[in-house]
Design a protein around this nucleic acid. Structure first.
Lengths: 187, 187
DNA sequence: GCGGCTAACGCTAAAAAATTGCATTAAGGT
DNA sequence: ACCTTAATGCAATTTTTTAGCGTTAGCCGC
């Protein structure tokens, strides 16, 4: 049996969700820097050694939780037209990511080296944008390029959140979107 | 004397530079995740408690070192024209930041919460771009907006480095710059 | 269903790292 | 040169992390 199987049901799964829930609870109460593995272990009723063995260290656990929280539960809202679809999605995206928990999740995701947490989380955004693109295509609109949307709109938003060099007002986000849409129409 | 003064000369400064040098040395040899405070303490001949008291924890120390390393030593090269100035600067910037040490420094800077390491490091980029802008103005060229350069060129580069969703080839960086320059000319 | 296999867990002990109190050193100002 | 006190070193304590080992419980073939 060269089959590498991660157990996914029963106790193992229950422990994972228990630990995840505990981390999320703690993140509501306290700052990320004050959370420790033993603390999570006690509140979740799991021994510390289990946590260390499964996740390696605190950053990997936090990254895992963050990715799980970022995993979208639904497709972006359908507003009837591509432009408003993108704007609506981006405004919500910017608000979520610039909030306290959003910034915390971003930091956690970027702080881990194993498991490609950043890549997986980034993929969620690509998927959403791809959904919007296909939706536009079925409507018969001239669709946009997802990579360009990342470069023009998403990247600046993330940059300003991470470096804190500029306030992320809805107006600013809307201006990013309009610039992008004009670019699309022009090219 | 309500004067709050951080001592800047003598032993204190020597210890800081000693610790900084040790961290940089260690970063050449090993991965960031394997470096510990006691390890730095031993190699630099400073007691661990001093490091903890001065920097708080490892992430803050790493962020401090990273910011110091990112502090520019010279103005960006003068190539004689705005377009090539920007392209030259951006190509070098992208290469530095996407290298192994560059990505490590980025992660360290973004991983600290105190001291606004991210903001200070970001400011270096603004300063360089501002230098290029003023240089263009004195040449009589129609200069560019620094914030827009961040949004159009720098932000996508940083995004792709952090999330690893795209290779940062020189061609791609050049395309970012040309798009930006066309936008400037068009507007 | 009913074992067999083994991944995953709990417990415990040991190692490593982080914190804290106290004495000492050495900047910086008067 | 003296005084004040920020900053360091040392050592004891606490906390966190690692590692060994027996036990539990998923998953698989029968």
């Amino acid at each position: 049996m060269a089959r590498e199987m991660v157990r996914q049901g029963g106790r193992s799964a229950r422990i994972q969700s228990e630990v995840h829930r505990t981390v999320q609870d703690l993140l509501k109460t306290m700052d990320r820097g004050e959370i420790t593995v033993p603390m999570i272990a006690e509140k979740s009723g799991v021994t510390p050694s289990t946590i260390y063995r499964r996740w390696g260290d605190l950053s990997e656990l936090l990254a895992d939780v963050a990715v799980a929280r970022m995993r979208p539960v639904a497709d972006p809202e359908d507003t009837g037209a591509m432009g408003s679809d993108i704007e609506t999605f981006i405004l919500q995206y910017a608000e979520e990511m610039s909030s306290k928990v959003g910034r915390s999740m971003l930091a956690d995701v970027l702080g881990s080296m194993e498991g490609d947490a950043a890549g997986r989380c980034c993929q969620f955004t690509y998927d959403h944008l791809e959904t919007l693109r296909e939706r536009a295509l079925t409507r018969g609109e001239t669709a946009f390029d997802v990579s360009e949307a990342i470069d023009f709109v998403v990247a600046p938003i993330i940059y300003h959140i991470l470096f804190g060099d500029r306030a992320l007002t809805p107006d600013y986000c809307r201006s990013l979107v309009s610039r992008f849409l004009e670019k699309c129409a022009g090219a």
